[in-house]
Design a binder for these strands. Structure first.
Lengths: 345, 345
DNA sequence: ATGAAAGCGCTAACAC
DNA sequence: GTGTTAGCGCTTTCAT
C-alpha cells in the first residue's frame, strides 16, 4: 500500500526518498529530472523510483523555483475577459498553449481597477512569473502600467498607442471586415449596406476599412450613404431597421452579431425574410447568438482563443514578436445560412 | 531616482536592502512583515523603507512560501468554465473572493480530459496551493479524482454521488424553478406549461420540482400534460412551439433562456405576441440573450459568480461547509418584460 | 532594538 | 555512478 495521502500531514521530501532508497539527495534529484548525461545504475534508479511511489513523493515546486530563479508560471492580467462571455476564450487559449510548454497560468481579473491591477502585477512579479500577458476584453489601445515593464510581457487584444514600445497581438479587423463583405459579394450582392458602431474603437475603423477593401476589389465604388451607425447591441440593430430599409440594398453587413440579432427582429416585423429578401452577415461569431438565430447567422470569428495562444507563444519566444507593430491574427469567416447561394447566371 | 526596473536583470534581494540600510536581513524582514511585537527604532524602520524604495525591492514569494510551507494560491480546476460563456463567472467570483483574502488563483482548464486533470492537480499540489476548487461548467454529479484528496478541496457547481464525502456548493435549482414559476403566477397565470429538457441532469429534476412546488403553494394541481420536453437550445424551443400551442396555456416556463429564445421565434411565426398572448420565463439569465430579446426575457439567474466566491469562502473556512450535503446557492429571479403585470381585478 | 545563524526543499558543481 | 556541499531568498528563534 502506498502513502499517497501522506502529503497532507507532512509533505514527503526529497531527503526522505533518498533515505528510503539508501542514496543521496543528489541522486534522487537526478533520476527525477531525468538528466541526459546522468549515468545512474539501473538498479539504483529502480530503488529510487520505488521509494518515490511508496512515499507518494511530490517535488516542491517552490523549492525548485527558488533555486532556478524563475517559475513555470505565466501571468494573465485581464480587465474583464473572465467576465465577458466569449473573451474568456483568451484565457482558454493562453492556458492550453502555456500548458503545452509546461507553464501554468496565474490569472487576475482587474475589472479595469488600476490599484487592483498594480497589486496583481506585483503579485505575479513576486511569484517570479516567466512573463505576463496583459489583455483587454475588447480590442483597444491601452496604457502600459509602469510595473508591467519589470516583467517580460505581451499585450493581448490591445496595443500601445506608442508604437515600437511593446509586443502585442490583436485581431485583424480589416481582414475580418473584408471577409464578411466577401461573403455577401459571393452571394451575388452588389449593393451592400454596412451598419457600423457609433462607439470609437479600432474595430470600428478596421471593419469599415475591410468593407471598403472588399468593395474595391470587386470593382464596386464605395458609397458613404450605405454606411449607417448604431449602438452595437441588439437594440441598436433593431433600431437601424427603418433607415436600412430606405437604402434599397439586398444585403447588410453588421458591425457585430448582436446588432444582427436585433436586425433580424426588425426585418421580420417588416415582413422580410432572411436570406431571401435580404442577406445579412455579422461579426464576432458569438456562438450562443450566431449559431442559433433563425436562420443561423453567417459571420466572422473574433479569434480570442488564438489571441491567447499566440500571446504565450510570443512571450516564450516561439513566435516572432516584432516590437514595431502588433501581430494581427486572422478573423476567419464562418458561413451559415443568412446569405443565400448565388442564383445561377 | 529609483531602480524600479532593476528587477529584470538581477532581482534585488533582501540582503541587498539590508546592506544598503546598514542593518541585518532579519531587521528588514521584520519591517516588511510589520510584525506586531517587533520593536524597531523609527529611525531604522525609516532607513529600511527608503532602501526598499530605492532599490525597487520585491519580496521573492517563492522563498517565503518555501519557508512557510504553504503558498497564497488557490487552485481552480475546471472542465470547461473558461470555455463556456457564462460559467466563466465562476472564475470571476472565485478570483475576486480569493484576492480579497490575499490569495491568487491558479487555474487549469481540463476540458474533461482526465490525464490533463491529473497533471493539473499534481502541478497545484507541487506549488503547495492552499486548496483546490474543482468545478464543472454545468451542474452535475462528478467523480472525485484520487489525487484531489491530497489537497483541501471543495466542489463547485458539482457534487459527489457519495454523500458525506466532499464539501460542495451548487445552485438551488428547485428554488430557482419555483421562483421562475412564481413570476408567472404573479402575472395572474394559472395554466402554465413547462418545457423541460430532454437531457438528464440535476437541473432537469430540480427545475421541475420547483415548478410543482410553486403550483402547489398556489393551490393549483400539477398536470403532467403541461410538461413538455425538448433539447435545451434554441432549436429545441422553436420546435416545441406547435405542441405548446395545443396546450391552451397562457404562460410558459422554459428550462433555459436558449429554449425561450427559440420559442420566441416560434410564437412570433404563429402571430402570437409576448407577453400579451403568452407570457414566457426562462432560466439561466444568460445576459447576451435574455436581456436583449424582444421583449427582454424574465428569467432566473444561475449564480455562477456566487458559486465561485462561496467555494473559496468554504475552502478557507470562512463559510460553513457541511460534508453531508452540498450547500445550495439561491437562483434569484430577474424580471424583465416577457410577463405582463397582472390585470387589475 | 538588532544581529547571527539555522534551515525550508531542492539543484548543481565538484569530488571520489 | 554517486555522495558532499554550497547555496537560492527568506523567516525565525535565540543571543546580545
Amino acid at each position: 500500500m502506498d502513502h499517497a495521502r501522506a502529503g497532507r500531514a507532512h509533505p514527503v521530501t526529497l531527503r526522505e526518498v533518498a533515505e528510503l532508497a539508501g542514496v543521496s539527495t543528489a541522486t534522487v534529484s537526478l533520476v527525477i529530472n531525468k538528466k541526459k548525461n546522468a549515468r545512474i545504475a539501473d538498479e539504483t534508479r529502480q530503488r529510487v523510483t520505488e521509494a518515490i511511489a511508496q512515499l507518494g513523493y511530490r517535488p516542491n515546486a517552490m523549492a525548485q523555483t527558488l533555486v532556478s530563479g524563475t517559475s513555470k508560471f505565466i501571468g494573465l492580467v485581464a480587465d474583464g475577459v473572465a467576465t465577458t462571455p466569449f473573451a474568456g476564450q483568451i484565457i482558454h487559449g493562453a492556458q492550453d498553449e502555456a500548458w503545452k510548454h509546461g507553464y501554468a497560468l496565474l490569472i487576475a481579473n482587474t475589472e479595469g481597477n488600476k490599484d487592483l491591477e498594480r497589486d496583481a502585477i506585483a503579485m505575479m512579479l513576486e511569484y517570479k512569473v516567466r512573463g505576463i500577458l496583459y489583455s483587454t476584453w475588447f480590442h483597444r489601445p491601452t496604457d502600459i502600467p509602469e510595473t508591467l515593464r519589470e516583467a517580460d510581457f505581451v499585450l493581448v487584444n490591445c496595443f500601445s498607442p506608442d508604437a515600437g514600445t511593446a509586443r502585442a497581438v490583436v485581431p485583424d479587423e480589416a481582414q475580418g471586415g473584408q471577409s464578411a463583405t466577401e461573403i455577401l459579394l459571393r452571394g451575388g450582392h452588389r449593393r451592400i449596406a454596412f451598419i457600423n458602431t457609433t462607439t470609437p474603437a479600432p474595430a470600428k475603423d478596421g471593419r469599415l476599412q475591410g468593407y471598403k477593401d472588399a468593395l474595391e476589389a470587386a470593382g464596386i465604388s464605395f458609397d458613404p450613404d450605405l454606411v449607417l451607425e448604431a449602438y452595437p447591441d441588439q437594440e441598436g440593430g433593431y433600431g437601424a431597421t427603418e433607415d436600412l430599409l430606405k437604402l434599397g440594398v439586398s444585403a447588410v453587413y453588421c458591425y457585430n452579431d448582436r446588432m444582427a440579432m436585433g436586425l433580424y427582429d426588425g426585418l421580420r416585423e417588416n415582413g422580410l425574410s432572411i436570406p431571401e429578401d435580404i442577406a445579412v452577415v455579422g461579426f464576432d461569431n458569438q456562438e450562443v447568438i450566431a449559431a442559433h438565430l433563425r436562420p443561423p447567422l453567417s459571420t466572422v470569428s473574433l479569434p480570442h482563443y488564438e489571441l491567447g495562444a499566440a500571446g504565450v507563444r510570443m512571450l516564450l519566444g516561439i513566435d516572432a514578436a516584432p516590437l514595431e507593430s502588433a501581430v494581427k491574427i486572422a478573423c476567419p469567416a464562418v458561413e451559415r445560412d443568412s446569405v443565400a447561394a448565388p442564383s445561377p447566371a
